[in-house]
Amino acid sequence: MRVLIIEDAPRLRETLTDGLRESGYAVDAVDNGRQGLVHARTTEYDVIVLDLMLPSVDGLTLLRELRASGDDTPVLILSARDRTEHRVEGLRAGADDYVVKPFAFAELLARLEALCRRSKGLTNNAVRIGGVVFDLGSKLFTVGGAELGFTPREGAVLEHLFLNAGRVVSRTELEEHIYSEDRQVWSNTIDSAIAAIRRKLADAGELVRTRRGLGYQVGKPARDTVQP
C-alpha cells in the first residue's frame, strides 16, 4: 500500500516515513501543501496522511480541492489542532479520520489499516482467498496457520492483489502501489515477484492468474473474509 505524508515538521515527517516503511507501506512524503496537491493528483495513493497547518496551501484547502476534483483517496488528518470544531471542520471537509498530535504510532497504524479496510469494503483485517489468509495488521500470509515467507516486495505485490481481489490489476498499478517515488523500479520487478509468489504458493493452487495484456488477478469470484 502506498501512503502520501504531507507534513511540514521535518523530524516528524521523516520518522513517520521511516516507521511506515518498516511497517510495509510505500511512503512518499512532502513538506508543503502545494507539493502535496501535485502528488495526490498525479499518483494513486491508498491513504493520504495530511497535516493541517502547511506552508503554501493549508491542509483543509488541499483536502477540499481533492474532494472537489472527485478524488476519494482516504485521508487521515494528523494535526495539533485538538478542538472539536477543528475535528468537525476537518471531517466535514472530506477527511476520513482525524488524529491529534501527539499520537501513538500503533494507533496511527491501526487507523491506517482501518481506512484501507473500509476503502476496500472489508470488515476485518483477515482476507482469505483460497487457502491463503492475509492479515492486514501484521502483513503476514498464512496457509493452514503456517506463515508464508515472502520478501517485502513479494508481500506488497500479493497484498495489493488480495486487497483488489477479483479485479485485474495492471503491472503499472502494482508498481505505483508498492514503490515510493524515490525507489528505482526495474521493468521485470513485478514479473519476477509474481513468479516468486507462484513458486511459494504452488501447494495452494493457481492463486495468481495472468490476464494477458491486462495484468494479474487473484480470487474468484472475489474475496472471502474470515475472523482471524
Binding site: 515538521a9 516528524l12 520518522t15 518498516e22 495539533a80 498530535k101 501527539p102 499520537f103 501513538a104 504510532f105
Partner: peptide, 15 residues
C-alpha cells in the same frame, strides 16, 4: 506548540 515536538518524541522512541 508543544504537540508537534511531543509527537516527534513519541514517534522517534516508538519507531
Amino acid at each position: 506548540e508543544l504537540r508537534t515536538p511531543i509527537a516527534e518524541l513519541r514517534m522517534l522512541t516508538e519507531v
